[in-house]
């Protein structure tokens, strides 16, 4: 039973990733793509949580926190670029 739940959840999250990739590929403007990249980062944190549930090891969540940090900093950098500023002003 837990096996089935885990597989179903991973399948649903893969569908989410597919929708994000659709928006990254077809997004008419650059900000659309940036939004999809941001959301993809958060969905990956869900994957690490599921891995930690499956294995019972707590350090998969370390990877999740690290991924959230990198995703946040990347999104801020993208937003600053979209604003039309250089990185050092």
């Amino acid at each position: 039973m837990p096996e089935t739940i885990y597989n179903l959840a991973c399948g649903a999250l893969l569908v989410c990733c597919g929708m994000c990739l659709y928006r990254i590929g077809l997004g008419p403007t650059a900000p659309d793509r940036a939004v999809a990249i941001d959301i993809l980062g958060i969905v990956v944190v869900c994957f690490t949580a599921l891995l930690s549930l499956r294995t019972g090891l707590s350090y998969y969540l370390n990877i999740g926190i690290a991924w959230a940090i990198l995703s946040f900093v990347g999104t801020i950098a993208l937003a600053k670029h979209l604003e039309g500023k250089g990185f050092d002003e």
């Binding site: 926190i65 959230a68 999104t75 600053k80 979209l82």
Partner: peptide, 26 residues
């Protein structure tokens, strides 16, 4: 997990705000 939740609840609206502002400026 609680640490991760706190982090996401703080950063995700901030990233959304930054992106919306960037989109408007671009």
């Amino acid at each position: 997990g609680a640490l991760c939740i706190v982090f996401i609840v703080i950063t995700s609206p901030t990233a959304a705000h930054a992106l919306a502002r960037g989109a408007h400026a671009s």
